[in-house]
């Protein structure tokens, strides 16, 4: 996309942080993470939970790494976190991002879920200064124009 095409696209897709063309996430073929993708489509943030350990786990795995119990359940967690680390990306390594730099990628820890971490984009002005520890909340970014559609969990500063 040229810069002009990109701003046109942003105008018609105000809810999407990055332009189309990046790889669409799909569930593992064995179904491990299907409950996560189904939940975030309904604006509900879930992660794995082991009732034996009373502890959350992320990313998804077939087994609890603490006690080796199989088939953990997915539980809803508060969609709030804080910035654990961040990066401002200036050099595009994918053709779809040629006109989108800089953009922000953040690593968010979830205090309500044993501080498991999630990677996402930080919405808003990418040049705005950022501080580790800042509080953020989840934004469910629905990509409906693709087949099959999918949802991404993005983040914005609390109060933005």
């Amino acid at each position: 996309m040229t810069t002009g095409e990109l701003s046109q696209w942003h105008a018609s897709n105000p809810d999407n942080y990055l332009p189309p063309g990046l790889a669409a996430p799909r569930p593992w073929q064995d179904g491990l993470d299907t409950p996560y993708w189904d939940a975030i489509e309904r604006n509900s943030l879930v992660v794995q939970y082991c009732d034996s350990c009373d502890a959350h786990q992320w990313g998804p795995e077939w087994i609890c790494h603490r006690c080796h119990k199989f088939d953990l359940e997915y539980v809803e967690v508060e969609p709030k976190g804080r910035i654990y680390s961040w990066e401002r990306i200036w050099h595009p390594v994918h053709p779809a991002l040629q006109a989108s730099c800089p953009y922000m990628v953040v690593l968010v820890e979830l205090p309500g879920a044993d501080n498991v971490r999630m990677v996402g984009n930080l919405l808003g002005d990418p040049l705005r200064p950022i501080t580790i520890g800042e509080e953020v909340e989840a934004v469910f970014e629905h990509h409906k124009d693709v087949d099959p559609p999918y949802t991404l969990v993005q983040w914005k500063r609390v109060g933005d």
């Binding site: 799909r26 593992w28 680390s85 990066e87 390594v93 990677v119």
Partner: peptide, 29 residues
């Protein structure tokens, strides 16, 4: 690629895909 169904799905859709991008996050921390 059009789709990603391995662990790259937790990063690539957010534009985090090269080695520099993977490691910058650890270094910043």
């Amino acid at each position: 690629v059009n789709e990603v169904n391995n662990d790259g799905k937790w990063t690539a859709p957010f534009g985090l895909m090269s080695p520099a991008q993977s490691f910058a996050m650890r270094v910043r921390r």
